[in-house]
Design a protein around this nucleic acid. Structure first.
Lengths: 177, 177
DNA sequence: TGTACATCAGTGAACGCGCGTTCACTGATGTAC
DNA sequence: TGTACATCAGTGAACGCGCGTTCACTGATGTAC
């Protein structure tokens, strides 16, 4: 992570993802945006796939960190789930690249395995809260909840800011039965 | 739709989508699978994009038809939503191409607009049921519910058959508050 | 019935293009003695 | 301090490749007279 040129390449990718998505992002685009020579790309990344995985990791790591920070001092349960969700949605609003990383990432064969692992990661967090609430089917519910969270993030991105309507609708799904 | 060669091209695409997804599907692949000359492709479709849109429409139309058939004689409400969902999930289990059409379609720039329109279509159906249940945020809830439905379809596809666990978890999200 | 012409799905070689990747090279910095 | 060598990020021209698309052509079928 620490090397400045490597960082410049990652940041260029995030900028490009905002406008053109992951699927259409070529190595040419990235090096042009980062203003380095094409060969430099391959000094820092084995190939295009490795680069896309790094991009996604960068995004996920930042998001998870902020969710963990927001929920660290709370006991498992509905309130913790709401707070984690809020941190997640707030984090997604930070950058428009989110849309590409949330949507494209799942269907890019190159990184779909990585994405699956990361989604399961978030689902694991939600699962603990559902279990603490005594909810049946906690594991499956958690996985379904995570995709609702992603969709909620996209909906907020559409309007460009946090939406009480979206969050209220999402939270309504938390306590059921 | 009626022309046999056009149908052969669509069917070839569905077969390819099972294994390789929409993103990596080239015109070369399609004509090879359909066993026609490359030029024939352009007799029936203006370009690759138009073809992908047709593929997705074919998939969506079949699915919607079966949802409508399953719910036609029911009043709006929770039971209708459950029946529609069941028909949706059963329909998705019919073909493995579903995975590609559900996931890839959203991030392929070529057809993302079409997909959005179609997702809103399903969300509209769910919205009427949420409204009949007197649920607040019915519109937003419906949109969130639709993506849970898609995720549920993928989960069932992973195990290759209908799953009571998945459907129970999904139905649990219907009555909340 | 026979002849001339129109229509149109189908063909496949050929095209230009942008892609991911390679590689011989440069030049700055660090290390050894 | 000066000289020789090693390291390594950075460079950009060049590569082969597969892609989407085009187009002049074929051949079967339908229509007119």
């Amino acid at each position: 992570m620490s090397h400045p040129t490597r960082e410049a390449l990652i940041e260029a990718g995030l900028r490009l993802a905002e406008n053109h998505g992951l699927a259409g992002m070529s190595v040419n685009d990235v090096v042009a945006e980062a203003e380095v020579a094409k060969g430099t790309f391959y000094v820092h990344f084995r190939d295009r796939t490795a680069y896309l995985v790094s991009l996604h990791q960068w995004f996920h790591d930042r998001l998870k960190e902020s969710v963990l920070a927001a929920t660290a001092d709370l006991p498992h349960g509905a309130e913790r789930l709401r707070r984690g969700t809020t941190a997640y949605l707030d984090g997604c609003l930070q950058g428009k690249a989110v849309k590409a990383l949330l949507l494209d990432a799942r269907s890019e064969p190159a990184i779909s395995a990585e994405v699956q692992r990361r989604n399961a990661d978030f689902a694991g967090l939600a699962q603990e809260d559902f279990e603490a609430m005594g909810r049946p089917h906690a594991e499956t519910s958690a996985r379904l909840y995570v995709v609702m969270g992603a969709e909620a993030a996209l909906m907020e991105l559409e309007v460009g800011k946090a939406s009480n309507e979206v969050r209220a609708a999402l939270f309504q799904f938390i306590e059921c039965g």
